[in-house]
């Protein structure tokens, strides 16, 4: 039983938390700006490499460099919006979706030019697990879970109680009505990109510190993140968290039933089933 928890459940929860951080960003963009952001995985990769850059240039420890990377990636996300997506706002949304695919490739290529294509790590060596009454956990896994919890709690509180959070929710529900009520759509959009960029950096960083940094890591993880966002209900932050955990656990547990090359397909199957059976997702999000 302990073995089952240690080698299937815990890795599933950790990877699920990482998916959740990515899925929140995807679901916010889906909900508020109304398009599927396919550059999200590569934005996460960029954030992770920026953290590595801060570590090597300034000499901060990886966890201290994370806030810096989150701010940088937030600015980057906003910059991408200003430079590219904003010009497509009035056009059909499919153009923005396609543009985001291109942005993703650009981000990935810039990372490959700057850091090369070999895998990198925040530090050398390995971290053996500590035992907590039989539960094997590594410090970085505890930190990953704590960070996810803290970010999600802050975000939920912000959306529920602050003025700008309410404006974001209003715009998510109905942008025209929100504007008539005096919500500044441009400022809400800007705020959304800041939040999304910061969260993307956090998810990329956690993915990197739990394994290695590779230039394709964000792209590879994005399918699972999209599945998590749709599963939880598009536009619902708490849904993205639950969705991420379900997808993470399903991928790890799938090994018990099907050969492991089908791990990624698990996320696909769940995504398809949800779209067919309950398109609004667990938490009643928008129907796509």
């Amino acid at each position: 039983m302990l073995e089952f928890i240690n080698f299937y459940i815990i890795p599933g929860i950790v990877i699920g938390a990482i998916y959740a951080l990515g899925a929140i960003g995807i679901t916010l963009i889906f909900g508020i700006l109304r398009f599927g952001h396919f550059a999200h995985g590569d934005l996460a990769t960029t954030g992770a490499y920026l953290a590595l850059g801060v570590t090597t240039l300034i000499g901060l420890t990886p966890w201290l460099s994370l806030p810096v990377a989150m701010i940088l990636t937030a600015l980057l996300a906003y910059g991408i919006h200003r430079l590219f997506y904003r010009h497509l706002e009035a056009r059909p949304k499919i153009l923005t979706v396609m543009a985001s695919l291109g942005i993703g490739m650009m981000l990935r290529s810039v990372v490959q030019v700057a850091w090369g294509v070999d895998p990198l790590a925040y530090g050398s060596g390995i971290a053996r697990a500590q035992s907590f009454a039989g539960l094997m956990l590594r410090p970085r896994e505890i930190a990953t879970l704590a960070l996810t919890l803290a970010l999600v709690a802050t975000l939920l509180a912000f959306l529920r109680y602050s003025k700008w959070g309410k404006a974001m929710r209003a715009m998510s529900d109905n942008p025209d009505l929100a504007r008539l009520c005096g919500v500044d759509n441009d400022r809400v959009t800007r705020l959304t990109w800041f939040i999304v960029g910061a969260l993307a950096a956090a998810s990329g960083f956690c993915l990197g510190i739990n394994t290695e940094l590779t230039t394709m890591m964000g792209w590879s993880a994005m399918l699972s993140m999209f599945a998590a966002a749709v599963l939880g209900g598009v536009g619902r932050v708490e849904g993205a968290v639950v969705g991420g955990l379900v997808i993470g656990l399903a991928e790890e547990l799938s090994v018990l039933l099907v050969p492991s090359p089908y791990k990624s397909a698990t996320a696909f199957v769940i995504l398809l089933a949800i779209l067919l059976l309950r398109p609004q997702g667990i938490f009643k999000g928008k129907v796509l």
Binding site: E3, P11, I15, N210, T214, S220, E251, V255, S260
Partner: peptide
């Protein structure tokens, strides 16, 4: 003897098997 897929973040369940 088990095949695995490239580029996954966790192989712990594979390893456990």
């Amino acid at each position: 003897s088990r095949a695995h897929e490239d580029k996954k973040a966790s192989y712990r369940s594979d390893l456990a098997e």
